[in-house]
Structure formats: C-alpha cells, structure tokens
Deep mutational scan, measured.
Amino acid sequence: PDDLEKRARELLKRGKNPDEIREYLRNAGYDQSQAEEALKRAL
C-alpha cells in the first residue's frame, strides 16, 4: 500500500470516520481523487 493508504488506515484505526479522513488528506495536500482511492482501499 502507498503512504496515502497507510495514512488512511492509521486514521481509521484511531476512530476517524471517512469524511474526517477525506478532509485530513485534502488538507495534507493530496488531491480529491487520490484521497478517495486511498480511502476506498483502506476501508
């Protein structure tokens, strides 16, 4: 898994919901489609 996916998994483990994770990834400078893909793979 790429770093983005790892980060998404990490956040899920900490109890973040998908919307929070999307926002976090966007704020971290990733584009929307990258964030969506990583989140899908992590779920």
Rank of each mutant, 00 (worst) to 15 (best):
N27F: 07
R26Q: 11
R41I: 07
L25A: 02
N17K: 12
K16N: 08
E37D: 10
P18E: 09
R9I: 11
L12Y: 05
E36R: 03
A28T: 05
D2A: 12
P18A: 12
A38I: 13
R22D: 02
E20L: 04
Q32Y: 12
Q34S: 10
Q32P: 14
L25M: 10
R22P: 02
S33L: 14
K6G: 09
R41S: 08
A28F: 09
A8Q: 00
P18V: 12
E37F: 02
R7P: 01
A38Y: 04
Y30T: 03
G29C: 03
L4E: 02
K16R: 08
R26W: 07
I21V: 13
E10L: 04
D19L: 05
Y24V: 12
R26P: 00
E37Y: 03
E10H: 05
E5S: 10
I21F: 05
E23M: 05
I21R: 00
P18M: 10
K16L: 15
K16Y: 15
E23A: 07
D31V: 05
E10A: 07
L4S: 06
L12I: 12
A8I: 15
E10R: 04
L11E: 05
E5Q: 10
N27E: 13
R7E: 09
R14E: 15
E20C: 05
N17A: 10
L11M: 14
G15V: 01
Y24G: 04
E20H: 04
E5F: 15
R7H: 11
E10I: 05
Q32L: 13
K6W: 11
A42C: 06
A42H: 01
R41Y: 04
Y24I: 15
E36N: 07
A38K: 01
D3W: 14
R14L: 15
R41K: 13
L39F: 02
Y30N: 03
R7M: 15
G15T: 02
R26G: 06
D19Q: 09
P18H: 09
L11P: 00
K6A: 13
R26H: 09
Y30E: 02
S33Y: 13
D3S: 11
R14D: 15
Q34D: 11
G29H: 02
G15R: 01
Q32C: 09
K6L: 12
E5G: 07
R7A: 14
K13D: 14
L43G: 05
D2K: 09
Q34I: 11
A38V: 10
L11D: 05
K16V: 14
N17E: 09
D31F: 03
P18N: 06
A28E: 14
P1R: 11
R26E: 09
A35T: 12
K16W: 15
A8E: 00
Y30W: 08
A38L: 08
E10W: 03
A42Y: 04
E20A: 05
R14G: 14
D2Q: 11
Q34R: 11
P18Q: 07
D2Y: 08
A28I: 11
P1T: 12
S33D: 14
Y30L: 10
Y30P: 01
E37L: 05
N27S: 10
D19R: 07
E36Q: 05
E10V: 04
I21K: 00
K40W: 08
E37N: 08
E10Y: 03
R26M: 15
K40S: 11
Y30K: 02
G29D: 02
R22S: 05
N27M: 13
K13H: 11
Y24C: 09
A28K: 08
K6H: 10
L12M: 06
Q34M: 13
L25Q: 00
L39C: 02
P18Y: 09
R41W: 05
R41Q: 07
R22E: 06
Y30S: 03
D19W: 06
Q32W: 13
K13V: 09
R9W: 05
E5C: 11
N17P: 06
G29M: 02
A8W: 05
G15F: 03
R14I: 14
P18S: 07
Y24S: 08
G29L: 02
R7T: 15
S33K: 13
L25N: 00
L4Y: 06
E36T: 05
R14P: 01
E37G: 06
L39S: 01
R14M: 15
L4M: 09
Q34K: 10
R7Y: 15
S33W: 13
K13I: 10
D3E: 13
D19F: 06
K16Q: 08
A35V: 15
N17M: 10
E5W: 15
K40Y: 09
E5T: 13
Y24H: 10
E5P: 05
R9F: 05
